[in-house]
Structure formats: C-alpha cells, structure tokens
C-alpha cells in the first residue's frame, strides 16, 4: 500500500508517501524515527494489522513548514528521512 500523508493547498502539494510493503519488516531498524529532526514518524499497527511507519497526525497538516528546515531554498542533496530509510519506502512529493 502507498500511504500518502500530507495535503495539497493553493501553495503546492506536500505529501510524504510511505510504501508499506517496503516498510513492513523494516531492515533499517526504524531509522526514520530518529532521523527526522521533527520526529514526525511513528510506528503504528495499521488497519490490516501490519506494523508500519506513518506521519503523526498534526504534522500531516503542516508538512510544508515542518520540512522547511531540511529543505533550504538554496537547494539540498538529500533528506535525512529518505537517507535513513534504506528499504526506500519514503518519498516526498515536493
């Protein structure tokens, strides 16, 4: 399952998507939990009883701001969450 957390408003589209098939049985020891400076990731048991990461509810409405520090306007080469997730489950839409 691709779970998209975030929103789209007039200013843009801000989704972090998590590929749960790659997230289940994480081989990176849930590195996303500590990699994110805002600690937005959390492990939950989803509706299909799989243990996967998701983005904490309040952050789903503020992603553009929450991720701003990791995305300086002058450019960046990698994001801590994506770098930490070696199975490659995490993607950003912006």
């Amino acid at each position: 399952m691709i779970a998209n957390y975030g929103y789209k408003d007039g200013s843009g589209e801000y989704y972090i998507s998590i590929d749960t098939d790659k997230c289940i049985g994480c081989t990176a020891e849930r590195a996303c939990l500590t990699a994110c400076p805002k600690q937005m990731f959390e492990i939950i048991t989803d509706d299909y009883d799989d243990e996967v990461a998701w983005i904490k509810k309040p952050n789903c409405r503020t992603l553009a701001y929450d991720c701003a520090d990791c995305k300086p306007s002058g450019g960046y080469s990698s994001l801590p969450c994506i770098a930490a997730c070696t199975p490659g489950a995490i993607k950003h839409s912006w």
């Binding site: 399952m1 691709i2 998209n4 929103y7 789209k8 509706d47 299909y48 789903c60």
Partner: peptide
C-alpha cells in the same frame, strides 16, 4: 476492497 494507495486532505478547505 483492500486499500492499495490513498491520500487524505483535511488541511485545506478547497
């Protein structure tokens, strides 16, 4: 009927 992809938007009223 199992979800394969989803998104929700409850941030913006549009």
């Amino acid at each position: 009927g199992k979800v394969t992809n989803f998104l929700m938007n409850d941030k913006c009223a549009a």
